[in-house]
Amino acid sequence: MKNLNRRQFLKFASVTALAAALQTLVSPLAAAEKFFREPPWKGKKKYWGFAVDIDKCIGCGRCAKACKTENDVPKEPFFFRTWVERYILRRPAGLEVTSPNGGIDGYPALTSPETITKTFFVPKLCNLCDSPPCVQSCPVGATFKSEDGVVLVDRKWCVGCRYCIQACPYGVRYLHPVLHVADKCTLCYHRISRGLRPACVEVCPTGARMHGDLSDPNSPLSKLRDTSHYQTLKPHMGTRPNLVYLNMDQEVR
């Protein structure tokens, strides 16, 4: 390049500039803009998802209790893989949310029922995010999203730094007080991998909870999603949850 004279340089520069200009004209035509993401289960086999119908939940708390039994979660009221919240909206103003012992022992009687406008129960569990901030933040690779879509914790590798617990916008993680590692709802991975239902789904009396295969368009879960309007929690966070809520009120946090 050193001994380029002026003419050669101008020739080179103009050809390059022309090529670049043509590229900008051609590329918008070549690549149509895509305003949606491909589903993560394309090509993969099973891909687990979950749906909760808020209109069916009666707040009996059996799901939370069965989860603790099935998964050997400490019984104290500070560690939950799943829990049920009660929302009470009042007129003229007032939003009360409670979850005494995760809903396992029921809820206290409603005060001043004449001021209540809406009240309902909301079960909570791992949101099965497609872009899980917990996985992103784990410094050592102890938490990960399995190939079939479940976010899991490697108990033998977790160092207990608690960063994943900070990163989860939904508060579904906790530090196991005995094992000193992060713990969370695993969708009863040990059960669903054997064709069983998660413990919470199993014991729910009204069928408010449903798990299923998102990659199969004919699974009950896929059919439910295709025929109902649903919402996810905190969509502005960009976590892309695979936990969907039917009949969810705006006030649900």
Binding site: P139, V140, A142, C158, V159, R162
Partner: peptide, 25 residues
Amino acid sequence: LHLGHPERGFEIFFTPNKTSAMAMF
């Protein structure tokens, strides 16, 4: 000291997760 498993602290040197800010430590 604040880790749940201080004896596993070395993991941050051996398997740092490149998407984690904390792994940079």
